[in-house]
Simulated assay, not measured.
Amino acid sequence: MISVNADAISKEVVDEWYAEWETLREVIHAAHDRRDGSALRFMVKGIEHFEAFIAGSSMTDNAFMEQNDYELMPINGMERLRFIKMRPAQYACYRQLDELYKETKKRCARLRVKR
């Protein structure tokens, strides 16, 4: 398991990361409401943003790799992320990505308390 870097999950860092997601989440939601196919490119950004945080918050400076076991990843997170990446333009995948963000934010808080 790749351990989390405690400095990388400080409240300030996580709050900034999550605020960026909230902004992007609103754009994705609006794109789904429009049903014009534009959600895909924003979802790709959201996935990249999520993966960069997971990898960047780990003790290694490697790029995100699906075969790695990250301490910060929520339960069944990698399986869920694969599902999202298979069909990122679907509304269900957007909802699942939103849940991964929420669960990761909570996991950061739990890990901060543990350390």
Score class of each variant (00 low, 15 high):
residue 100 L to K: 01
residue 64 F to L: 08
residue 69 D to T: 10
residue 48 E to T: 12
residue 103 E to Q: 14
residue 65 M to V: 06
residue 71 E to V: 01
residue 101 Y to M: 15
residue 69 D to L: 02
residue 81 L to P: 07
residue 101 Y to K: 08
residue 76 N to A: 12
residue 57 S to N: 03
residue 66 E to K: 12
residue 82 R to V: 09
residue 51 E to R: 06
residue 103 E to I: 00
residue 93 C to M: 13
residue 86 M to W: 03
residue 53 F to M: 11
residue 89 A to Y: 09
residue 49 H to R: 13
residue 99 E to I: 09
residue 85 K to M: 14
residue 53 F to Y: 06
residue 102 K to S: 13
residue 60 T to Q: 10
residue 105 K to P: 07
residue 72 L to N: 05
residue 84 I to G: 13
residue 73 M to A: 04
residue 61 D to T: 10
residue 86 M to C: 06
residue 60 T to G: 05
residue 51 E to S: 12
residue 99 E to A: 15
residue 63 A to P: 00
residue 59 M to G: 01
residue 73 M to S: 04
residue 59 M to Q: 15
residue 68 N to W: 08
residue 105 K to Q: 15
residue 94 Y to M: 09
residue 62 N to A: 12
residue 93 C to Q: 13
residue 101 Y to N: 03
residue 66 E to V: 10
residue 64 F to N: 04
residue 64 F to M: 08
residue 104 T to N: 09
residue 43 M to C: 04
residue 91 Y to C: 07
residue 45 K to I: 13
residue 46 G to D: 05
residue 93 C to G: 13
residue 68 N to Y: 12
residue 46 G to W: 05
residue 84 I to T: 05
residue 89 A to L: 05
residue 95 R to I: 14
residue 48 E to D: 13
residue 80 R to L: 12
residue 79 E to H: 09
residue 94 Y to D: 06
residue 60 T to I: 08
residue 88 P to K: 01
residue 103 E to A: 09
residue 71 E to G: 05
residue 103 E to R: 11
residue 65 M to H: 10
residue 63 A to E: 06
residue 52 A to D: 12
residue 48 E to V: 14
residue 69 D to P: 02
residue 87 R to V: 07
residue 102 K to Q: 11
residue 66 E to R: 09
residue 94 Y to I: 03
residue 58 S to G: 07
residue 51 E to M: 11
residue 51 E to Y: 00
residue 84 I to H: 06
residue 69 D to I: 03
residue 58 S to R: 09
residue 47 I to G: 02
residue 82 R to P: 00
residue 55 A to E: 01
residue 45 K to G: 01
residue 100 L to D: 06
residue 47 I to E: 01
residue 57 S to D: 02
residue 88 P to A: 04
residue 66 E to T: 14
